[in-house]
Write a protein that binds this DNA or RNA. Structure first.
Length: 318
RNA sequence: GGCGCUAUAGCCAAGUGGUAAGGCGUGGGUCUGCAACACCCUGAUCCCCAGUUCAAAUCUGGGUGGCGCCU
């Protein structure tokens, strides 16, 4: 069976993925599918740098702005939805362009990871969390060593979130997480993908862009948006977004505004670094270093040529 | 000009004779159902010179810089 061609734009936050994605979609008759764990939520427009209608400039964008903030969301949900969207776009004879910075979502999608249907059980989690606070992380880790030594070997005892998930899977199914993991890569990917990774040789240039963008977000009403989210409360996945939790000390009169804004910048820089760590290990990524181009047109053109060549698509150079 | 205090990693900082805590930042890394999460790893010979001592970041003298006070 012929594979479905997809283009992927990855890279750290504030590297210009959104704009490039739209350019690519325009050039190859494509539609954008976001791969971003936070832009999926309704509202939260400013903090997540969600593309505005002007930025989308007529290109359809999928998996953005469709979920209520109080709903949890996971990689498995993402992969399921993204697979559907890719097929729909493919049937319309258009090119799916995956654009986003959530490394786990992207790699799970293009590697066609099979997620077993094991939802998390809040009761089990709650109980395990209580156990860990009462008896310590080591105690839970010892349990994991007994029931799933393979997973335990890959985790640090302090990584409570993952230790709990592994124990949860074992408790619900009686099977080890490591077994499921081994089975998750058995189905070959139905996609033929090019992955463009955006980065700078000079890390400071990325950081400068991040710092500037946070200031612009503040000008555009980040504080007000954050206050609204803060007052609404009750969130799961969405509560992780950078730009809200950092302002809570300010809302509670425990810190001044500038301190909190600086914290947002710092957290965003750290996030960008983690994203780069994630993407760097993906050998399939074709890196495009932004500081090698003196203007946007050359940069866009370079990316378009690369994609055309890798996927054997037609692209006429203007 | 005089007097006092002070000088430890990019920043904050403990250590007052036996051979450099910790925190933050930075950099690197891990990741299969909350991933913008969670977690791990990461640095100095203590301003300079001379002296005392078996041994000095720690004591003494001098120099230099900073801070404060005085005239």
């Amino acid at each position: 069976m012929e594979k479905i061609k997809i283009a992927v734009i990855a890279g750290p936050t504030a590297s210009g993925k959104t704009e490039l994605g739209v350019e690519i979609a325009k050039a190859f008759n494509g539609e954008v599918i976001s791969a971003d764990s936070m832009q999926i939520y309704k509202g939260m427009d400013i903090a997540t740098a969600k593309p505005s209608p002007e930025e989308m400039s007529g290109i359809p964008h999928h998996l953005i702005d469709f979920l209520e903030r109080d709903r949890a969301f996971s990689v498995a949900d993402y992969v399921e939805l993204a697979n559907e969207k890719i097929n729909e776009i493919y049937k319309r004879n258009r090119l799916p362009v995956i654009v986003g910075g959530t490394g786990l979502y992207i790699s799970s999608l293009i590697d066609n990871i099979q997620f077993p249907d094991i939802k998390s059980d809040p009761e089990i989690r709650k109980r395990l969390e209580i156990e860990s606070t009462r008896f310590g992380n080591e105690k839970l880790f010892e349990q994991l060593k007994k029931c799933d030594p393979e997973t335990a070997a890959e985790l640090h005892p302090n990584n409570l979130v993952r230790v709990i998930r592994a124990l949860e899977v074992y408790e619900i199914t009686g099977r080890k997480l490591s077994e499921y993991k081994a089975e998750s890569r058995l189905v070959e990917s139905p996609y033929e993908s090019v992955i463009i990774g955006l980065n700078y040789h000079d890390r400071q240039r990325l950081y400068d862009r991040i710092n500037l963008r946070v200031d612009i977000m503040v000008e555009n009403g980040l504080i007000e948006e954050s206050r609204e989210v803060f007052e609404a409360g009750e969130m799961r996945t969405a509560a992780n977004a950078i730009g809200y939790k950092e302002l809570i000390p300010y809302f509670e009169n425990n810190a001044d505004l500038q301190t909190c804004i600086d914290k947002i910048k710092q957290e965003t820089r750290r996030y960008a670094k983690r994203q780069l760590t994630w993407f760097r290990k993906n050998a399939k990524i074709q890196w495009v270093m932004l500081d090698e181009f003196d203007n946007k047109e050359k940069f866009f053109d370079y990316c378009k040529k690369n994609i055309a060549k890798s996927l054997s698509l037609c692209y006429n150079i203007k």
